[in-house]
Write a protein that binds this DNA or RNA. Sequence first.
DNA 1: AGGTTAAACTTGACTCATTCCAAAAAATGG
DNA 2: CCATTTTTTGGAATGAGTCAAGTTTAACCT
Lengths: 141, 141
Amino acid sequence: MTLDFEQMLREVALRVTRPRVEVLSAVHARPHADTDSIIAAVRTTLPTVSHQAVYDSLNAMTAVGLVRRIQPSGLVARYESRVGDNHHHVVCRSCGLIADVDCSVGEAPCLIASDAGGFTIDEAEVVYWGLCSDCSTPGNP
Amino acid sequence: MTLDFEQMLREVALRVTRPRVEVLSAVHARPHADTDSIIAAVRTTLPTVSHQAVYDSLNAMTAVGLVRRIQPSGLVARYESRVGDNHHHVVCRSCGLIADVDCSVGEAPCLIASDAGGFTIDEAEVVYWGLCSDCSTPGNP
DNA sequence: AGGTTAAACTTGACTCATTCCAAAAAATGG
DNA sequence: CCATTTTTTGGAATGAGTCAAGTTTAACCT
């Protein structure tokens, strides 16, 4: 499995380093994890990584589109490996759980290709807010 | 004009204080302003307000729906007075300029009433990313 | 009106995610 | 395998936002 990730890094012209491989692996293993969780996960196999190396890796991989950063209002940044498609997210207001949602209105790109107010739009980001099934069960405020 | 804002505060059962009136006025005067700008604006007429009072006012007014907080990924919180309708925002990747966009796909609530993956959704938040007309002019990266 | 009380405000310290920095280490390319 | 360039390290810094103790004030009551 490690080879997979090395390959993916090379394909986007990023140098292959242990921290990057482990970070990429961690993001694949736990979708929607925040930076702290990823640092913790990486340290189980690579105990000495600095938090900075993880931040750098995540930024570099986000920049080339290997991973995707999601950051709903008021929450810390989270990362996922599902990239390239056009899915969105549901966030639980109570516990912060995030789940994927496929684009439901309109077709694939979910994007206004035209410009609005002179803006040239290249991405539409949708966040749905609500309660997950656990939190909407009677008894949880 | 001051009376207007006092009235609005009373209608939502918030105590009428100078800081609140001035904050509300500032949010109306400059849509999409961030907290710092609002603090600065309020201090032109009320030089001694603490930043905490402004934060508190904004939180209280956001909680009752008198103002709306918007917080695109990576940017600081911004506030606007246009509430109750269902408009969204375009954000310029280059300069951070924000403009309003009316709901364009689907009808008014822009909301999946059904539940996705067990979630009970109550709000759909859409952010369009791109470049404003100034920043997409040749010459600006 | 004047007193009472709960809500707001002030001040200043503090948190915490994220970034900056300079030196040390490691990964490619020749 | 060595030189060059990029990463990683470790620690300090930044900055939006929050917390808490004590004081002030708006709103309610008679």
